[in-house]
Design a protein around this nucleic acid. Sequence first.
DNA 1: CTTTCATTTCAATATTGTTTGAAATATAGT
DNA 2: ACTATATTTCAAACAATATTGAAATGAAAG
Lengths: 108, 108
Amino acid sequence: MNETDALAAFSSISSATRLRILKGLVTAGPEGMNAGEIAELVDATPSRASFHLSNMADAGLVISNRQSRQISYRVNFETMGALTRYLMDDCCQNNEIVRNCCVTGNRC
Amino acid sequence: MNETDALAAFSSISSATRLRILKGLVTAGPEGMNAGEIAELVDATPSRASFHLSNMADAGLVISNRQSRQISYRVNFETMGALTRYLMDDCCQNNEIVRNCCVTGNRC
DNA sequence: CTTTCATTTCAATATTGTTTGAAATATAGT
DNA sequence: ACTATATTTCAAACAATATTGAAATGAAAG
């Protein structure tokens, strides 16, 4: 992941609505959720949800595919992994405090 | 780290100027850099650098302390660690792909 | 106590992002 | 073809953020 991609991803998840969409989609798992369900989840109008979803898709955070009439969105975990690593390695140069914090079970 | 703090941190590093400041400060290490040096590094006017630095300080990403006439900034690695973990655990529920990506040395 | 240096604060402007509602597109059933 | 459903696209209004340059602050030196 390069700086431009990282900026787009950080920018995308710096909106409360989009961060909640992301969390909802992580919970939903590989099946994903339809645009309409997502809109309901975050209490947004269809067009507003669509706007945020296309922002997330542009940032590579989610992947969409049409299932008959509905469009299903799921998390792109590759991007999320690359982003987390960008934060840890490119930004923090694999700093010890940061690395240590990221071992699940550790206090930080 | 809670959602509000994470949003502030993501929002802060979703600016190219601030992301570069962050990287510069990580490279500078615990000594940090003065506001003026940072401004020079990212090719910004003093007031513009100051604006971005106070945004980063508000987000808890950097810590400032005055050294006689200059103000020195350094990275708050605790926050960076907490943020990285937020991404991995709170957002991605410690997803395997994401976790695996974050082991330095792995391909992802 | 005035000057110089480093930085911040402020107000004005410029830029960018978000929301809304209406119209458009795409798919499926009748 | 016609109607209903799901979603997107668009333009306008609105809101938030960034940039600029000038003025203000705080600290040291003469």
